[in-house]
């Protein structure tokens, strides 16, 4: 079985994708742990799934989505939602400079 071994560089790349910043220690530890876990996951390759459909296109217990009429209903008031943060201005969320 060929196993994808995740390198420290790949760990850094994945962290970047996930918007996470890792310390050097974490990078070392995660490289090792992620390798162990991924080698264990590679067990799945033993099972022939050539003719099998993936499970994600329908809910597992009932095959249809529930839709409701497109009628606007009241949602949480703007001030209630903005109360969840100190970082706001003129009815907007305030964030640091984007670039």
């Amino acid at each position: 079985m060929t196993e994808k071994i995740i390198t420290k560089t790949e760990v850094e790349y994945v962290a970047k994708l996930a918007k996470l910043e890792l310390s050097e220690e974490q990078k070392e530890l995660f490289s090792k742990q992620l390798n162990d876990i991924l080698s264990f996951f590679a067990k799945l390759k033993e099972l022939d799934t050539e003719q099998i459909e993936p499970a994600f296109h329908s809910h597992i217990t009932h095959s249809t989505n529930h839709f409701h009429e497109d009628i606007p209903k009241p949602s949480l008031a703007q001030e209630v939602v903005l109360n969840l943060t100190e970082h706001k201005q003129d009815g907007y969320f305030q964030v640091p400079k984007i670039l």
Partner: peptide, 14 residues
């Protein structure tokens, strides 16, 4: 290799 495979195995388990 990982996500799609896992979803297929999920079908097998079901």
């Amino acid at each position: 290799d990982y996500y799609l495979k896992a979803q297929k195995v999920r079908t097998v388990i079901k």
